[in-house]
Design a protein around this nucleic acid. Structure first.
Ligand code: NAD
Ligand code: NAD
Lengths: 209, 209
DNA sequence: TTATAACTGTGAAAAAAATAACAGCGTTAC
DNA sequence: GTAACGCTGTTATTTTTTTCACAGTTATAA
């Protein structure tokens, strides 16, 4: 039986945050860091930080706190796949192109290796160093390039269909920008980035506090 | 003493989701809807839906469920300000322009009435029907146009400074796209839309399940 | 050496969120 | 008329997440 010491989604998100911050600290040549410093920089409590780090089994010292380099490394070993994970983007519109630009060459371990669109005008061009394929080549490219993660940036009305294509092609991690609730079989994870909802929340709390 | 029957952030987010879905149902001329239908469409449980609706004090009927129009209306009265809430966007780059296009004319109650950038090339032009101002006019425009919500789409290194400007100008609801944890005084709400974190989470769960 | 100090790791407690459970209620079927 | 049905509103329960609190640890200083 595999010991799946379950780590919550929340914790994964925070670990990603901590890592980004540690990267910055490393650039600043900081060698050690305390839980309360990480907490301060990431907007959580020190206890939360310690608990999250406990989850990945990294131990610090009571005097020097955590070694920035080692902690960074530990989180990376935990979060990242041993090899590169390839990503596909579907929907090369306004947002899709911004995302392509943004991610282009930024993360070594997670790179968008193929874009897809149903619009023939966009297809078979290279945009920000990324080739744009027609949708009917989706499954083949996913298999060929071992793509594991999908980003959906098509209109809401098309999102479920695109999602289904992704799932059918074996993708099990999806980032969804479209204003649509996707239905997926268990085992497929969807990260929701819903701007409309976020804006409404911000507006609500701007009023209510 | 004001009876602030506290409604959780989570619930606010779901209400926004339900409303979007009800809007669609209305377009489909559906008159009534049951909690389990809303649940199904929004990916939560029926009990959760009923609990959320309880929070805003809307009651349905045990036979016909909820009246689509009325529920929509109830949620809107709860979520929306009585009058329009104006929004400012800071950072008219790739993402900022996509956001401008996306929101342009889409929501009557929440419209971006001003964009800001520090790049002189972008300033004093109209982009998607929205005027782009230089940053030094920020406070004045916020006051003049009664802007209550801000969207941050500048590089991470600039985000805190922009945030501080927003807070100083009286903005109390912020949507942040930058990969930075913002520090704000209590009473200011920040909605985080962190693509880097979401992508890493999706990649992690694509592997781990 | 021994006290002091500041931190970590973690069990225990608290808080928050989600789920389950069910009484009550119109409607329909008979 | 009344029994059965399928839903809501809400209370109770469970689960998840966060925070608290403190024993244990290691450097430092007296
Ligand atoms: N633009 C933004 O800033 C923004 C912000 C938040 C959310 N969104 C959401 O992101 C999505 C994309 O927004 P956008 O502004 O880039 O829209 P867009 O219209 O500019 O681009 C959509 C692209 O998807 C392509 N497409 C449509 N259906 C497709 C399909 N079935 N298969 C493959 N490609 C398809 C279109 O050809 C087009 O290139 C939308 O769901 C939108 O609601 C956008
Ligand atoms: N492009 C994307 O798809 C994407 C996705 C996720 C997150 N982000 C984040 O969103 C932010 C914007 O991304 P982008 O791709 O649009 O970048 P960009 O470089 O294209 O645009 C940034 C804009 O902000 C302006 N700017 C910089 N500093 C400023 C300041 N202090 N005040 C006012 N304006 C300022 C610049 O002049 C530029 O126009 C970044 O933080 C990025 O990490 C972008």
């Amino acid at each position: 039986m595999i010991k799946t010491s379950h780590i919550s989604e929340r914790t994964i998100g925070r670990l990603s945050l901590y890592r980004r911050l540690l990267h910055q600290l490393q650039a600043d040549e900081k060698v050690n860091v305390f839980s309360h410093e990480i907490a301060q920089l990431s907007g959580v409590t020190a206890a939360q930080v310690r608990r999250d780090l406990m989850a990945i089994g990294y131990s610090g010292s009571s005097v020097h706190g955590y070694d920035v380099y080692q902690l960074n490394d530990s989180i990376s070993r935990f979060l990242d796949a041993p090899q590169i994970q390839n990503v596909a983007l579907v929907g090369v519109g306004n947002l899709g192109q911004a995302v392509l630009t943004y991610l282009s060459g930024r993360r070594p371990k997670l790179s968008i290796v193929a874009a897809f669109d149903k619009n023939p005008v966009k297809v078979n061009r290279v945009i920000n160093g990324c080739r744009c394929y027609p949708m009917n080549e989706f499954a083949a490219q996913v298999q060929q390039q071992k793509i594991e993660v999908g980003i959906i940036a098509v209109p809401g009305s098309e999102a479920q269909a695109v999602c289904d294509t992704m799932v059918a092609s074996g993708i099990r991690g999806i980032v969804n920008f479209a204003p649509a609730t996707l239905k997926t079989p268990t085992g497929v994870h969807v990260e929701v980035l819903d701007m409309a909802v976020s804006l409404e929340k911000a507006a609500y709390f701007a009023r209510i506090g």
